[in-house]
Design a protein around this nucleic acid. Structure first.
Lengths: 108, 108
DNA sequence: CGTGTAAGGAATTCTGACACG
DNA sequence: CGTGTAAGGAATTCTGACACG
């Protein structure tokens, strides 16, 4: 289904660059992590690394914050999104399972 | 022709991360720049930033170096590659020009 | 030529805390 | 709650140079 694990999700960007890219202060970026909105990796001794996905997510967070949405609410929305996707995946998987059961195994 | 300027070419990776990603020392990476093999951007006060393309190019360079190819030769090959691509683009452009001349202007 | 290293300085990042509201 | 800031330390990056071969 996915062709490249690729660039978009590789955690390689330092917080300083993320700050430039998003216009957020480092303080804000670290705080959103504390509130469980983003999950940077820690490569070398403690340094945070972000992906392009993280940068995009941060921009969305910034937009919502400007509208006055609280971090807690943003988190709830994110959880809902994730759940919806997982349900979808689960449905697809089940469907494939039924197809395989009736028509035999097939590559996907 | 291209859909996204996108992730692959954005210069956002610091030299330390590039070093981890490629297995090259920072010294080597800076030297290849000196030899005009790669062209990082300088964002904040002097810090080098690389793209995923740069990382891939560096991996190719590392492979060639292992085979004993000199930086000068690698550069020559790169120039040849670039030239070939430019010629191709020029041909396409000319062709489009002729088509437009005969059949009228068309969006591309 | 290609790479290592010691040198000294400047900029980055980190954490925990106090502040305001 | 969300963000700013001063604090002190640790790690990063930079440049120019000397070294070896």
């Amino acid at each position: 289904m996915k062709d490249e694990p690729s660039y978009k999700n590789r955690k390689v960007i330092t917080i300083g660059v993320v700050s430039e890219l998003t216009g957020l202060t480092e303080r804000q970026i670290r705080y959103y992590e504390e509130r469980k909105l983003i999950f940077p990796e820690r490569l070398a001794r403690g340094n945070r690394k972000y992906s392009f996905s993280d940068v995009e997510k941060l921009i969305e967070i910034a937009n919502k914050r400007e509208e006055g949405v609280r971090t807690y609410e943003i988190r709830q929305e994110m959880i809902k999104e994730t759940k919806k996707e997982n349900d979808k995946k689960a449905r697809n998987k089940m469907l494939r399972g039924q197809i395989n059961a009736r028509f035999g195994i097939q590559k996907d």
